[in-house]
Design a protein around this nucleic acid. Structure first.
Lengths: 139, 139
DNA sequence: CAACAGTTTAGAACTATTATAATGTAGAAA
DNA sequence: TTTCTACATTATAATAGTTCTAAACTGTTG
């Protein structure tokens, strides 16, 4: 068993009880060297692979939403039949490969800061997200 | 009855048979002075208001997808439980008001062109879309 | 340990969307 | 105009992602 005290602390400090399900999901999401994108379906598969204790689908949904609300995950705006999440919560944008149905991070250094020269009165900007759709270049 | 020859021509020239359902949907979508955003659900309501001939939900879906494929509509990438479409097919970006769940066009002149300084080998860029999420500014 | 509020769970419910297959129709050909 | 046929429409069923429900369970506090 790995050291989960970091996750227990993380959960507790954000007002989420460190249940064994949540700790397991933290392991699956945040233990890997690289950040990644996932759908709920894919996450459920990753969880099954890494534990014998089944976690209910409802709990996976609950937990992902809780983590998203706490800022530990980001949801990626994309037209799809399912929601995509990102364990990389730092500011960055995405390529979406429409041929492969695949999301790819764009290093933030590779995008000039997006300047929006207008505002909506009474509203503040929460995020600016760029989605670059690509397809096979048949040439 | 208005002059629908423009829609009949438009449909025919793109290889879509000008059926009365498609012409009616053209009227609802393209007759108005201003472009607008809609969900399938909202479109169905607009159609009901403007005609007594009911159009099947399946036909609305079929037609919206056909129009989207022909480039007469754009789908807006946003995380929502339903798809949003835009009758404004010119290049522009959007504000999404998370408080009001409302989409607002950003005039293209108000956004500095987004520069992506990286590419994916073998892929070509199909679109670059910016979504600016805003919320109530409580200050 | 007792108590309780928060959490998990299986399964039902819900909702947007797509598939199906029978019926209808626009357009072309005779 | 009549006929033919490929394309469209339709009601309905099916599908799939997500949320809801309410009972059982558990982490935390006293």
């Amino acid at each position: 068993m790995l050291d989960n005290s970091q996750y227990i602390e993380k959960l507790r400090s954000s007002g989420l009880r460190p249940t064994k399900q949540r700790i397991k999901i933290c392991e699956v999401l945040f233990n890997s060297e690289k950040t990644f994108h996932f759908t709920i379906n894919e996450l459920v598969k990753r969880i099954s692979k890494s534990t014998n204790d089944k976690i209910s689908l409802a709990t996976v949904y609950n937990t992902v939403h809780a983590f998203k609300n706490k800022g530990y995950l980001k949801e990626i705006p994309i037209n799809s039949d399912q929601s995509y999440f990102d364990t990389n919560t730092s500011h960055h944008h995405h390529f979406y490969d429409e041929t492969q149905k695949d999301l790819i991070d764009i290093d933030d250094a590779d995008v000039e800061p997006v300047k929006i020269n207008t505002r909506i009165p009474g509203k503040k900007i929460k995020s600016v997200e760029v989605l670059v759709k690509v397809e096979d270049d048949k040439s």
